Computed example of a mutant assay.
Amino acid sequence: MSGKGAGLWTLSIVIGLLFAAFFIYVAYDIVSKGLSNWQEWIISRPFIALGRDFWFVVAGILWVIGTVIFFMEVSGDTIDRSFRIVKNNVKWDAVDVTVTALSAAIYGGSLAATGGIPIIPGFTWLRPGNALAPLFGMLFGVPGALGTAIGNFIADALTGYLSIGSIGGFIGNFMIAYLPYKFMKDHSFRSPRSIIEYYIWGAVIGSVYVALYISWWLDALEPVIGLPRPLIWGWFAPWVIFNDAIVTSTITPILGYLLYPPIKMRGLYWKDRVGQP
């Protein structure tokens, strides 16, 4: 290995460890201060400091973008790197349909397994199963991302959390899987670039995106859904970021490293099936 290659590996490992260490510290901060003292969480401070109006506007922009992307992708279109609308080349043959169904079943089951540990009753719970969401997008592409969305809906139904708020969770969870699928160039977890890209798109941006997407939906429908806006932005959004990021920054890279070779060997990796649009 050249000196440059060793340096890149060192950088990627340091970045991964820093992200993981930060979210482990956030976990310690939440546990030490208690779930009821969410105003004091370090991860809540940016939301409280900048205020509801700021986050509602930012999240609204992300909500529009995410919703448009979802409907484009499931209808067969995508935006390429030249910002042109092209076909995403998903075949939706028996393999793609099976991948979607299995992703939904596995993801939904993994989330439902901890449904008895509520954080905000009726709205969210402890969800280590979120570690699977980026993987399904990275490995299986749009079918895996759609399976993730359906799986979250299944989990809501199985755990008694199903409501109009689940619509936001449906597309929000699609985006957790979609972002690393779309914006990472190397999904193997076997190169410095792959690791760095994953922590940016899969662990951090994906976690923030889903939190803001769902929070905007809950805020917009607050008169119907009933969760007070201060709790949406001060408690729910920070918790969702933490709950996603803590598992996607620690568990997902290990699972990805182990699962990528057998998935690719069996011809199920999305690039081998459709090419990169």
Rank of each mutant, 00 (worst) to 15 (best):
K4T: 08
G7H: 12
L8M: 13
L8T: 01
T10G: 14
L11E: 15
I13G: 13
L18H: 05
A21R: 12
Y28G: 14
Y28F: 14
L35I: 14
W38T: 01
W41C: 02
R45V: 13
P46G: 13
L50Y: 08
F54M: 11
W55E: 05
V57M: 12
G60R: 06
G60Y: 09
L62S: 05
W63F: 15
T67V: 04
F70W: 01
F70C: 02
E73Q: 13
T78L: 03
D80Y: 03
R81Q: 12
S82E: 15
S82M: 14
I85W: 05
N89I: 00
N89P: 00
A94D: 11
T98F: 14
T100F: 05
L102D: 06
L102V: 15
S103Q: 10
A105R: 02
Y107D: 00
A112F: 06
G116M: 09
G122V: 06
R127H: 12
A131K: 02
A131G: 01
P134L: 07
V142C: 14
G144P: 10
G144M: 09
A145F: 01
A149V: 00
I150P: 06
G151H: 02
A155M: 00
L158M: 08
T159W: 08
Y161R: 06
Y161E: 07
L162M: 15
S163K: 03
G165H: 07
G165N: 03
S166I: 05
S166C: 08
F170I: 02
I171P: 05
L179Q: 02
S188L: 11
S188E: 12
F189Q: 10
S191V: 10
P192Y: 11
I195Y: 03
E197A: 09
I200R: 03
G202E: 10
A203K: 11
V204I: 15
Y209H: 07
L212W: 06
S215H: 09
S215W: 10
W216L: 05
L218I: 14
A220S: 14
P223Q: 04
V224R: 00
G226H: 09
P228S: 12
R229N: 13
W233N: 04
G234V: 05
F236K: 01
I241W: 08
F242I: 07
D244G: 03
A245G: 09
V247R: 07
P253R: 10
L255A: 07
L255E: 01
L259S: 08
L259D: 10
Y260W: 09
K264M: 04
R266M: 15
K271Y: 11
Q276V: 15
